[in-house]
């Protein structure tokens, strides 16, 4: 449905905005390398079922997400490594990995590798933006491109919420995917303060600065 398609394209847009920023400005300043590595982990653990993905739409997006994320990490770790400031990227990701790992082991739909890894990936994605938001907090401001990147990334999962509501009412056989929905709502809540600042500042053409 339209919400989901918009969400997936918003996700794709966020990746291209980020790629554009890094290549245009030849710098990855203001971007959290830790968050990018977490996203890589999210894609790998979520798309283990890539080889037998039924719909071409999903297959193409999965390949796009994995390959573009690999490229972003290459750019940040190799090509533009000097512009990477690890002193600003100090969020303790082990807490996020522990959070996702614990929930994946406690409440998977089924104790199979695929399901446990999938649950891990869903929970990890819900908190993977924290190092990036934390870094934003530290620097107090961000380039417009970085703000657009985070906004598009936040919109992707936010749009999945109406998608789930739509599916609930339109597909009689559809059962609510409680893990994805709970994590999706948590994820969107984590972006809420950013969205507010983004909306009030960037929409008025101002530079993105935290109050």
């Amino acid at each position: 449905n339209i919400f989901r398609v918009l969400g997936d394209f918003s996700h794709l847009a966020s990746i291209f905005i980020l790629l554009h920023k890094i290549q245009q400005l030849k710098s990855c300043s203001g971007i959290s390398f830790k968050s990018q590595v977490l996203y890589m982990l999210v894609y790998i653990t979520r798309y283990l079922d890539l080889p037998w993905t039924s719909s071409p739409y999903n297959f193409i997006f999965k390949v796009l997400f994995i390959s573009s994320e690999l490229y972003i990490i290459y750019l940040m770790a190799r090509a533009y490594k000097p512009t990477n400031d690890p002193n600003l990227d100090t969020f303790h990701v082990e807490f996020l990995l522990g959070f996702a790992g614990l929930l994946a082991l406690l409440f998977p739909y089924k104790y199979t590798i695929l399901e446990v890894f999938w649950a891990f990936s869903i929970w990890l994605e819900s908190v993977a933006i924290l190092p990036q938001l934390f870094m934003l907090q530290r620097t107090g401001e961000a380039e417009a491109m970085t703000a657009h990147y985070i906004a598009a990334l936040g919109m992707y999962r936010a749009l999945y919420i109406p998608n789930w509501i739509y599916r609930y009412f339109s597909e009689p056989t559809h059962k609510v995917d409680t893990i994805a929905v709970t994590a999706g709502i948590l994820q969107t809540i984590l972006y809420s303060d950013f969205f507010w600042i983004y909306y009030t500042k960037v929409m008025r053409g101002e530079k993105f600065k935290l109050p």
Binding site: R4, K110, N163
Partner: peptide
């Protein structure tokens, strides 16, 4: 197989 083992969303 149940619904959950067919992941139809990204």
């Amino acid at each position: 197989k149940g619904r959950y083992f067919v992941k139809d969303e990204l």
